[in-house]
């Protein structure tokens, strides 16, 4: 029983420009903490956590850290394979990270069409606490996300705001998908049976 549970059910990749806080986001989600001036540079190459979906089924979410690959786009593509969801991050206090967003998303869609994309605006606490100025207006983000029909959340890995919500919605939607696929394949199977009978 246990061995079966070990398997990762939902593979998630986290991408985005350098220093937008990809590793911190993972750290917050997995360990529920935040390290100011992180002593660790690279964090875990792979981490996993079990979440329960809205419908009550449990899923193991596995996350691949892509930090360090930002400039080597052909290499990043290797990480996309079979990913069910991708969190594309930008730093709301850094305009150029927002400008990089589009290329990340189009690349993802090119390689893994069926991968669900989530946009994550990071470092919300810096704006909320007035430490840094927001360089990317929320309106603009929402408009863009609506346009490409993608969910957008602004998170803070420092306070944890919206981090669980982000991963929760990934699990919920993936589980929902599974049930839709299961239903349609069941239907297909039934259709086949009927045809066989005749």
């Amino acid at each position: 029983m246990k061995t079966h549970n070990n398997r990762v059910d939902i593979k998630v990749v986290i991408v985005g420009n350098m220093s937008v806080g990809k590793t911190s986001l993972i750290q917050r989600f997995i360990h529920e903490n935040f390290k100011e001036n992180m002593n660790e540079t690279i964090g875990a190459a792979f981490s996993a956590k079990e979440l329960t979906s809205m419908s009550g089924s449990k899923r193991i979410v596995g996350i691949w850290d892509t930090a360090g690959t930002e400039r080597y786009r052909s290499m990043v593509k290797m990480f996309y394979r079979d990913a069910k969801a991708a969190i594309v991050c930008f730093d709301i206090t850094n305009k150029s990270s927002w400008e990089g967003l589009r290329s990340w998303i189009s690349e993802l869609r090119e390689v893994e069409e069926n991968c669900k994309v989530y946009i994550c605006g990071t470092k919300k606490d810096l704006v909320d606490e007035g430490i840094s100025e927001r360089e990317v207006p929320l309106e603009k983000c929402n408009e863009y996300a609506r346009g490409i029909q993608v969910k957008l959340l602004e998170t803070s890995s420092k306070t944890g705001e919206n981090v669980d919500e982000l991963f929760q919605s990934i699990v919920d939607e993936c589980v929902l998908d599974e049930s839709i696929i299961a239903k349609s394949s069941l239907q297909l199977a039934e259709n086949d049976k009927r045809r066989m009978c005749c």
């Binding site: 540079t41 690279i42 190459a45 691949w64 850290d65 930090a67 360090g68 690959t69 080597y72 990480f79």
Partner: peptide, 8 residues
Amino acid sequence: QRVMKYQL
């Protein structure tokens, strides 16, 4: 993954 991390 590893060869990418060395630079960081």
